[in-house]
């Protein structure tokens, strides 16, 4: 049963791209209302599918995803859009609209709250614009508001992506391999920005990550997935060589 602190509750989630070949096999998870949860596991094990099922960029085959009193798995149309407004997402490839300015990209985080006509005329609320400036300052891009997104470096783009997601004032932040396209130093910086912004705005974070060390360093909880199943769920300290072997298979890659 879920505790009162549970923000997101996934029950018996199954996703089959091809009938009879599930990528996610009966996943059940509870995510609490704070902290970072890192999902690790080999490529193709359904980490990304799991994250994308939550905000329905991918439609689950069966199961339940309870979030803020609604079953996300069953929503469509306007209720789905309303639920998506409450879930921020950060992507591996940043996924900004490259030909728009940094400011326009950050303000895009408010699209769920304004009409298409308002957005087209860029008539966002003053409060939203103030918040966007504050966020840009917070991620260290105060002077970049009017630069086009395609002029920025990868790390800078990811900062804009994070600002866009936080701009939604979300109840949950999803991150799908947010550092996989970045160098190690920038990866750490991005993780710090994400951790700090999530803490300041009390947003729980679910993050898919390839770099186990980064996950251990920033997450309070690690979920290890293998073959579409959760094989580890616990504190970062508990991740020993045996468990990593269970998650990724083999052992030659593990430095002794």
């Amino acid at each position: 049963m879920s505790s009162p602190d549970t923000k997101l509750s996934i029950r018996h989630l199954v996703k089959e791209y091809v009938p009879g070949k599930p990528v996610l096999k009966d996943i059940s998870l509870d995510i609490e209302g704070r902290g970072i949860t890192a999902i690790i596991g080999p490529s193709g094990t359904g980490k990304s599918t799991l994250i994308r099922c939550i905000n329905r960029l991918i439609n689950p085959t069966s199961g339940e995803i309870m979030f803020e009193g609604r079953d996300l798995a069953k929503l469509s149309g306007t209720p789905l859009r309303e639920a998506r407004r409450r879930i921020g997402m950060v992507f591996q490839e940043y996924n900004l609209v490259e030909r728009l300015t940094v400011m326009e990209n950050v303000l895009s985080g408010r699209l769920g709250y304004v009409s298409a006509w308002t957005a087209w005329r860029r008539k966002f609320d003053d409060a939203d614009i103030q918040k966007a400036f504050a966020l840009l300052k917070r991620v260290g891009l105060a002077d970049f508001a009017n630069r086009r997104a395609d002029e920025l470096s990868g790390g800078q783009r990811q900062r804009v992506g994070i600002a866009r997601a936080v701009m939604q004032s979300p109840g949950l932040l999803l991150a799908d391999e947010p550092t996989s396209s970045l160098d190690p130093k920038t990866s750490v910086e991005i993780m710090e920005v994400m951790r700090d912004l999530a803490a300041e705005n009390s947003i729980p974070v679910m993050i898919n990550i390839h770099q186990v060390e980064l996950g251990k360093r920033y997450a309070q909880r690690i979920i290890g997935m293998s073959g579409g199943l959760v094989v580890y769920d616990g504190a970062p300290d508990g991740l020993d060589a045996d468990i990593l072997k269970k998650i990724y298979g083999g052992q030659d890659w593990l430095a002794t």
Partner: peptide
């Protein structure tokens, strides 16, 4: 980019 805007609730 379109996916990101969908995720925002556009």
């Amino acid at each position: 980019s379109i996916e990101a805007l969908q995720a925002v609730g556009a």
